[in-house]
């Protein structure tokens, strides 16, 4: 039995995990390359790791480790919709949704199963960034800058940033699954999901919360910026660079509230998607 199949067999035997099992099987190098050039793919991955890794180690002294974590919300904003938005729209497109709706599984579980698909890319993104940080840490130690390698400082703490990344990923997943349930083609679902998220993360802040505002100190706009998925970085930058430091308890409270809202809206969107599927199941739909 293959390594991947061993992992698949460890997944609990519940219908809700139907999508994750397939996703894992497709994650193997053999599947990703259509059963061909397994050795070539492994060599390719090793070469990329060597090039990126050696560059990171050499440039380590110039990189602020903690801020690297803030790549994650951006990655999630662009990559997760690409992975998640086809989940239901794709079923429409290939006319396989009816088979799924005929199965003895609730629409809530179908949506949960589809949303769980996001777990693998989320963990992969986190692993890659943590691996990069590890390489930078090695580089810093070799270059005698180990005092810069503080990944547990309060405002750029890896555990907290990872948690916030999970929260934002949950929101992105919920939104993408919902958009997928109301569109009938994968391209429409992808465009709509990314459009909405880019609007939320980049366009809206660019209009109402110019990032430059964080540098001008504890203004109302500066506090609003803490609501951003990368709000932790905003607070950290404002704290380090502003002449008049932000009132930290207020900023942290805003950050907490906004992340609770992300969780709530993520769950709300998933619920909407389940309701949409329940409507299809009850009243039918045109393929």
């Amino acid at each position: 039995m293959s390594f991947i199949e061993n992992i698949v067999n460890r997944i609990p035997n519940k219908p809700v995990f139907f999508e994750v099992r397939q996703q894992l099987r497709r994650s193997s190098i053999e599947s990703a390359t259509g059963g061909n050039s397994k050795i070539g793919s492994i060599i390719g991955v090793i070469v990329i790791l060597l090039i990126v890794g050696s560059n990171l180690i050499m440039a380590a002294r110039y990189i602020q480790v903690g801020y690297l974590m803030f790549i994650l919300p951006v990655l999630a904003t662009f990559l997760l919709p690409a992975m998640v938005s086809p989940v239901i729209a794709g079923e429409f497109q290939r006319r396989s949704l009816e088979q799924l709706l005929a199965a003895p599984i609730s629409t809530v579980d179908i949506v949960k199963g589809k949303a769980l698909r996001a777990i693998i890319p989320v963990l992969m993104m986190l692993t890659i960034v943590l691996f990069m940080i590890l390489l930078i840490g090695i580089g810093k130690i070799f270059q005698g800058h180990e005092q810069d390698f503080d990944v547990f400082s309060p405002f750029i703490s890896l555990p907290v940033c990872s948690l916030l990344f999970f929260v934002w990923s949950f929101f992105v997943t919920g939104l993408s699954v919902f958009v997928s349930s109301v569109t009938k083609s994968t391209s429409a679902a992808l465009l709509a999901s990314i459009g909405i998220l880019v609007g939320l993360v980049f366009v809206v802040p660019a209009i109402i919360v110019p990032l430059s505002a964080v540098a001008i100190g504890p203004t109302a706009i500066g506090y609003l910026a803490a609501m951003h998925p990368a709000g932790m970085m905003v607070i950290a930058v404002a704290r380090d660079t502003s002449a008049e430091p932000m009132h930290l308890p207020a900023a942290v409270m805003i950050l907490l509230v906004s992340n609770c809202l992300y969780l709530a809206f993520g769950a709300f969107f998933l619920n909407l998607a389940a309701r949409k599927l329940a409507t299809y199941r009850k009243t039918g739909f045109e393929n």
Partner: peptide
């Protein structure tokens, strides 16, 4: 296998 999972 996927549908066997779904059908319990």
């Amino acid at each position: 296998d996927m549908f066997a999972t779904l059908y319990g």
